[in-house]
Design a protein around this nucleic acid. Structure first.
Length: 470
RNA sequence: CGGGGAGUAGCGCAGCUUGGUUAGCGCGCUGCGUUUGGGACGCAGAGGCCGCGGGUUCGAAUCCCGCCUCCCCGACCA
C-alpha cells in the first residue's frame, strides 16, 4: 500500500520533514521580509478553527474581546523594568513616519500589557469594576534571530488575555482557570495533544510576571513545545500603570493583573505532535475537511454515488468534501489528501460500486474497510468521532513512553536527548540549570509529583521536567 | 555578532576549476491526446537583467574587486 516516500522521513531529518509538510500541505510560505509568514488558505482554515474553539472557551470564562492599537509609545515599555529589559532585544521600533523623524519612537507591540495597563487604570475606579476581564485577537511583532514557520515568526497571530482583580487570590485563581478550562481543555479535546501542566522556573518566566504557567507538549521527535501560557503579574504592572481601585472600605488599593496567550505556534505544534511520514494528521474536531469523498475516476455513476455520500455526511453534521477526479490520477489525489491530513476518506470506484461497495479509510492508522454503499456515511461519521480519541491516546502513549523519571541531573541529560526527564527540582538548582543550558536543554516546567500545578517554585517535593525544546 | 555554506526559470539543481556559438536538467506550469483502484504517459509549448555594481578581455554565468541577500551551527524567545 505504501508508495515511494513523498517526504523526508521524520527519523532521518525532522526539521526538513517539517518544512516539507508545511510547503506540500499548502499551509504557509515564507514572507518577503525575513521571519515573516504568509499563511495560505488551508493553514488559515486550521487557524480559524483553533481561534473559534479558544474564543468560545474564553467567553465561557467570562472575558470579553476588545482591540488595542498596534503602535505603542516607547515610554510605556520602560515603565516596568523587567518587562522592558526582557523585550528590548526583540522590538521593532518606528523612528520615522509622515516623512519625518518622530519625537518619541513608537514600538510595534511585542505584547500589549503596557497599553492595556494604561487603559485599565482609566477604566477601573471601584471594586465594582473588578474583575476586568479582557481579551484581544491580534498580531504582534518580536524580531527573531532564527525564525521558523509557525513555530517562531517575527510577526505572529495570537490571542492575549489581560485581566485585573482585587486580590492576589482572585488573580491567581483566574489565571489558573484559564489555564485549565481554556488551554488544557482545548489542547486535549480539540488539538488532541496531551500536555504537562506546570509552572516555569524563575529563569523561564515571562518578563514582569510573578508566576508563569505552561502547557508543555511533546513533539514526535521528543522535543518540547510550550503550547500556551498564563501569567500572574502580581502588582508589577498595576504599580507601573497606576491601576488602583477603591475598596469597599474606601481605601485606594493596587490591582493584581494577569495575562495569558496562545498563538499561531499551535499550528506548528499540531503538525509536529501528530504528523507522520505521509504528512499531516488532523484531529477531526479541528479538521476543516473531516471526510473527503474521492472519486476513483470521473464517471457519471461514480460521481452520483459521491454526491450521495456527501449529502448524507453533510446531513449528519460532518464537514465533507468531494474530490471529483478532475485533478489528476487517483494515486496522486490520495497522496495529496493524506498530506493534508484529512481524517477519513471514502473511495468510490466503479469496480466496488458494481458490487454495491465503497472503501472507507482512516488517516491516523491507515486502516481500510470495504463496506456496503448504504453503510459508508455512517461508518465515516463514527470514525470521525473515534479518531479524535484515538489520536489523543496515541499522542499520550508516545509521550509517556519517552518520559522517564531519573534520580539526578546526569540521568536527566541522558534522557532528555530524546524525550522528557522527570527529576527532583531540588537536584537542579542554578548550577544545574546552567549545565542543562550547555546541553541545549531547559527545565520546561515544575510540577508536584502527582502532576498537578504547584502554587510556586518553593514548594517542597517538586519535580522538574527537563527537555530540549522548540 | 562569531564560525561555515549558497545566490543560474515557480521549486530543486548542473555548468564556473581550464572564459568561446542559441545557458542546460528534473519537478511544476500551458495545449492536445491517451489514461485513471496508491505520486500516469506521449507529443508540442511557455518561462532566464546567471543576486547587484564596477573591472579585465575581441568575448564573462565562468576571472578580479566591492556590495547586498539568503541558509546552516552558536548566544534570545509564544
Amino acid at each position: 500500500m505504501a508508495g515511494p516516500s513523498v517526504l523526508t522521513p521524520q527519523n532521518e531529518d525532522f526539521p526538513q520533514w517539517y518544512q516539507e509538510v508545511v510547503a506540500k500541505a499548502e499551509m504557509a510560505d515564507n514572507g518577503p521580509v525575513r521571519g515573516t509568514m504568509v499563511i495560505r488558505p488551508y493553514g488559515y482554515a486550521i487557524w480559524e478553527r483553533i481561534q473559534s474553539a479558544i474564543d468560545e472557551r474564553i467567553k465561557l470564562a467570562g472575558a470579553q474581546n476588545a482591540y488595542f492599537p498596534l503602535f505603542i509609545p516607547e515610554s510605556y515599555l520602560s515603565k516596568e523594568a523587567e518587562h522592558v529589559e526582557g523585550f528590548s532585544p526583540e522590538l521593532a521600533v518606528v523612528t520615522h513616519a509622515g516623512g519625518e523623524e518622530l519625537a518619541e519612537p513608537i514600538v510595534v507591540r511585542p505584547t500589549s500589557e503596557t497599553v492595556i495597563g494604561e487603559f485599565m487604570a482609566k477604566w477601573i475606579q471601584s471594586h465594582r469594576d473588578l474583575p476586568l476581564l479582557l481579551n484581544q485577537w491580534a498580531n504582534v511583532v518580536r524580531w527573531e534571530m532564527r525564525p521558523r514557520l509557525f513555530l517562531r515568526s517575527s510577526e505572529f497571530l495570537w490571542q492575549e488575555g489581560h485581566t485585573a482583580h482585587a486580590s492576589a487570590r482572585d488573580a491567581s485563581a483566574y489565571a489558573l482557570k484559564i489555564h485549565l478550562e481554556v488551554y488544557h481543555d482545548f489542547l486535549e479535546k480539540v488539538l488532541a495533544v496531551p500536555t504537562f501542566l506546570g509552572i516555569k522556573p524563575p529563569s523561564e518566566r515571562f518578563a514582569g510576571a510573578t508566576n508563569t504557567m505552561t502547557c508543555e507538549g511533546m513533539m514526535r521527535d521528543g522535543k518540547a513545545l510550550q503550547m500556551a501560557t498564563s501569567h500572574e503579574l502580581g502588582q508589577n504592572f498595576a504599580r507601573a500603570f497606576d491601576i488602583y481601585f477603591q475598596s469597599e472600605q474606601g481605601q485606594s488599593e493596587l490591582c493584581y493583573t494577569t495575562s495569558w496567550g496562545a498563538s499561531t505556534r499551535l499550528v506548528g505544534g499540531l503538525i509536529m505532535a501528530h504528523g507522520d511520514d505521509r504528512g499531516l494528521i488532523l484531529p477531526p474536531a479541528l479538521a476543516p475537511i473531516q471526510v473527503v469523498v474521492l472519486a476513483v475516476r470521473e464517471d457519471d455513476e461514480v460521481l452520483t454515488a459521491c454526491r450521495d455520500q456527501y449529502d448524507q455526511l453533510t446531513a449528519a453534521g460532518v464537514r465533507a468534501h468531494v474530490d471529483d477526479g478532475r485533478r489528476g490520477s487517483f494515486g496522486r489525489r490520495v497522496t495529496d489528501w493524506e498530506m493534508k491530513g484529512v481524517p477519513v476518506r471514502i473511495e468510490v470506484g466503479p469496480r466496488d460500486l458494481a458490487q454495491g461497495l465503497v472503501s472507507v479509510v482512516r488517516r491516523d492508522t491507515g486502516e481500510k474497510s470495504t463496506v456496503a454503499v448504504a453503510d459508508a456515511a455512517a461508518l465515516a461519521s463514527s470514525l470521525v468521532r473515534d479518531v479524535q480519541g484515538a489520536m489523543l491516546n496515541a499522542a499520550r502513549t508516545l509521550r509517556d513512553s519517552r518520559t522517564t523519571t531519573v534520580s539526578d541531573l546526569d540521568g536527566a541529560i541522558e534522557v532528555a536527548q530524546e524525550g522528557f526527564a522527570r527529576v527532583e527540582w531540588s537536584k537542579v538548582g542554578d548550577a544545574g540549570e546552567a549545565r542543562l543550558k550547555s546541553q541545549a536543554m531547559t527545565v520546561r516546567c515544575l510540577q508536584r509529583s502527582d502532576g498537578s500545578m504547584p502554587e510556586n517554585e518553593r514548594e517542597s517535593g517538586l519535580v522538574a521536567i527537563v527537555a530540549r525544546s522548540y
